[in-house]
């Protein structure tokens, strides 16, 4: 099987990887680039644990071939915090105890960040539907929704 040479950008850093044609972006992020913050929960696009952005759009990295990332910008959980510290969403997830086991947390934060970039003031229903592709089995979602609402409020104040 011939490997493919893929040039992409991950969290703003140029990356070059050799990958198999069938390998998913998730596999390559985790196995080739060591970015294990993106989690695998199902490999069928049903749990959202592997959420990343691809040219700014929210996707499940299990349903993207690594080869498709050629020339694109990939954003993962590792790129959410900045050198000054945690992103507001990360801080709010902590303050609201919006995680228990934490396996779904990176996916939720990546997804919620895209939401707030598009809709700075989403109502509860909007948040719930936007995040419907991110399964959490621990929290019953309540504290996650509140964390996102609180982050939106804080970001609005900052703006």
């Amino acid at each position: 099987m011939s490997k493919l040479h893929v040039t992409t950008s991950v969290n703003g850093q140029p990356e070059e990887v050799l990958c198999e044609p069938h390998q998913s972006l998730l596999d390559v992020l985790r196995d080739e680039l060591g970015l294990t913050g993106t989690k695998e929960g199902c490999s069928t696009g049903d749990c959202g644990a592997c959420s990343v952005t691809l040219d700014g759009r929210l996707v499940c990295s299990c349903l993207v071939l690594a080869a498709e990332a050629e020339g694109k910008e990939v954003g993962t959980i590792e790129g959410v915090a900045n050198p000054d510290g945690l992103h507001v969403l990360q801080q709010k997830f902590l303050e609201h105890a919006a995680l228990q086991c934490g396996i779904c947390t990176p996916g939720f934060i990546v997804a919620a960040k895209v939401l707030l970039e598009r809709d700075p003031n989403p109502d509860e229903t909007t948040i719930r539907y936007w995040l419907a592709g991110n399964l959490c089995r621990c929290t019953g979602y309540d504290k996650i929704i509140r964390a996102v609402q609180d982050a939106a409020t804080e970001l609005a104040h900052e703006a």
């Binding site: 696009g45 929210l58 936007w130 592709g133």
Partner: peptide, 9 residues
Amino acid sequence: IGSTQIQGR
């Protein structure tokens, strides 16, 4: 068709 993530693809 699917979640926000699926919609992206």
